[in-house]
Simulated assay, not measured.
Amino acid sequence: MTETMTLVAPSSARRPRAAGGSGPVARRIRRGILYAILLAAAAAMLTPFFWMLMSSLKNANEVFSVPVRWLPEVFVWENYVEIWERSDILTWIRNTLVLSVAVTALQVLTGSFAAYGFSRIRFPGRNALFLLYVATIAVPWQSYMIPQFIMLTNAGVANTLWSIIFLQTFGAFGVFLMKQFYETVPEELSEAGRLDGLSEYGIWWRIMVPLSVPAIASLSLLTFVNTWNDYLGPLIYLRDPSLWTLQLGLQNFVSSLYDVDYGVLFAGLVISVLPIAVIFLLGQRFFVEGIATSGMKG
């Protein structure tokens, strides 16, 4: 009879010790360093906006004082009253809002519709046509700006808001973004819609569009911000002061005064940034979700 001896190793011998730097203390240190770096980066990005906000509450002599005064000695709230009285800022805001809403709505409509065709309709040369269309994103606008201006002038829409709307109604980036999202939607949903008697237009409108709310929100936010902040397009096409946008109006507000009150000017800049900040904060969740899901293929 053979006796079997079993050696029971101590628990400390059975569990390998944690490698150096991988314990809970080291993880907390690394996390703390990461948070410190993120906070420093966020502070660096927000510092210009804080300086702009504080400058809008200073008098003209304090704005560019040396050394820099981050906080005004006296808060000059009258700057926000003067920008409304000394400029036509209400007209500028109205024109900018009209252009931003119109361009955003049209880009979402045309982008989602074209993206459905590229993602669901089978036709010869589809992939080549899509790559050719998306490749136009890499072409700088300055390279075809003059021919485009001549075409719109001959069409009789120069010096009207329609010129900016026609320029930005179609965008390759919107088609690319929406197509990437549509490819994550199962093909079975489209087949079920066809069995129920829906046309391709009905499938796009009643199935694909409701499912693509995050992507539509992302595209809407990006398009609205780009149109709101656009300066070069209005500078080229909008010569009538009654058609100026907010960015163009503020630039001419500086050029039209010999002695610029920069406190009043910064008040106008704060007013121009405020709508964008509010819209981005309200749509941040949809924006992140839309960008994340548009990069996935199911």
Rank of each mutant, 00 (worst) to 15 (best):
G117M: 12
F118A: 00
S119F: 01
S119P: 06
R120P: 04
I121K: 05
I121P: 09
I121N: 11
R122I: 06
R122L: 07
F123E: 01
F123P: 05
F123D: 02
F123S: 04
P124R: 13
G125L: 04
G125R: 11
R126H: 05
R126V: 01
N127G: 09
N127Y: 03
A128I: 13
L129R: 06
L129W: 11
L129E: 09
F130E: 07
L131N: 09
L131W: 11
L131R: 10
L131Y: 06
L132K: 02
Y133A: 15
Y133I: 14
Y133E: 13
V134Q: 00
V134Y: 00
V134T: 02
V134S: 01
V134I: 13
A135W: 01
A135G: 02
A135L: 02
T136P: 09
T136W: 04
I137H: 12
I137C: 12
A138Y: 00
A138K: 00
V139H: 11
V139I: 11
V139K: 05
P140E: 01
P140T: 03
W141I: 15
W141A: 08
Q142G: 12
Q142F: 11
Q142V: 15
Q142N: 10
S143F: 14
Y144N: 09
Y144D: 03
Y144V: 11
Y144K: 05
M145F: 11
M145V: 10
I146T: 03
P147A: 04
Q148A: 08
Q148F: 05
Q148C: 10
F149D: 02
F149I: 06
F149W: 03
F149V: 09
I150K: 12
I150G: 10
M151R: 05
M151F: 15
M151V: 15
M151W: 08
L152A: 14
L152M: 15
L152G: 02
T153D: 02
T153Q: 07
T153N: 11
N154V: 08
N154D: 15
A155L: 15
A155N: 07
A155T: 01
G156M: 05
G156I: 07
G156N: 03
V157S: 01
V157A: 07
A158V: 14
A158I: 08
A158W: 01
T160K: 11
T160A: 12
T160I: 07
W162L: 14
W162T: 13
W162H: 09
W162R: 12
W162Q: 14
